[in-house]
């Protein structure tokens, strides 16, 4: 299975990650960690008043699967509405990667989605908090 996992597309995104870098003025951001591998990922999002994602960046380190998954996901996000982004499910990520994944590696693959959801959810939290005030 291993060699099928490391397809050209995956290796390309791993070696030449798209949208890699920090975003000091991000509207939304979240970080998470996969304790099994030590994969560490932060996703930053910029949104406009209509809730459209105008820019995405990520930082972190980890295995080829977690990092290429993050790179590919950020490409997918640009121009999407927040509510659309919220609807991305694990299947979508698995299809996006297009490689066979063991249960263990699935965790690596889905870290990016987990972090994205955390970032999107953080907005709801902060909005709820401001509404209370």
């Amino acid at each position: 299975m291993a060699y099928e996992m490391y397809q050209e597309q995956i290796l390309d995104h791993y070696k030449h990650p798209r949208n890699r870098g920090e975003m000091p003025d991000a509207d939304l951001q979240a970080r998470d960690y996969n304790p099994l591998c030590g994969d560490d990922l932060t996703i930053y999002l910029k949104t406009d008043e209509k809730g459209t994602i105008t820019d995405v960046k990520f930082t972190g380190q980890g295995c080829a699967i977690s990092q290429s998954s993050a790179s590919m996901l950020t490409m997918m996000l640009k121009g999407k509405n927040i509510s659309e982004a919220k609807g991305i499910d694990p299947d979508r990520i698995v299809k996006m990667l297009g490689i066979p994944l063991s249960a263990v590696r699935l965790k690596c693959a889905l870290l990016s989605l987990q972090v994205l959801k955390k970032a999107l959810f953080s907005k709801e939290l902060s909005q709820a908090e401001t509404m209370k005030e």
Binding site: A2, Y3, M5, C37, I65, R105
Partner: peptide, 22 residues
């Protein structure tokens, strides 16, 4: 070149079991 997890995955394909992680 590679993260320990990826090293372990490729070694596994060669029948070699090593530990990777923290």
């Amino acid at each position: 070149e590679a993260h320990p997890h990826d090293i372990a995955a490729i070694l596994d394909a060669e029948g070699i079991a090593i530990r990777s992680g923290h």
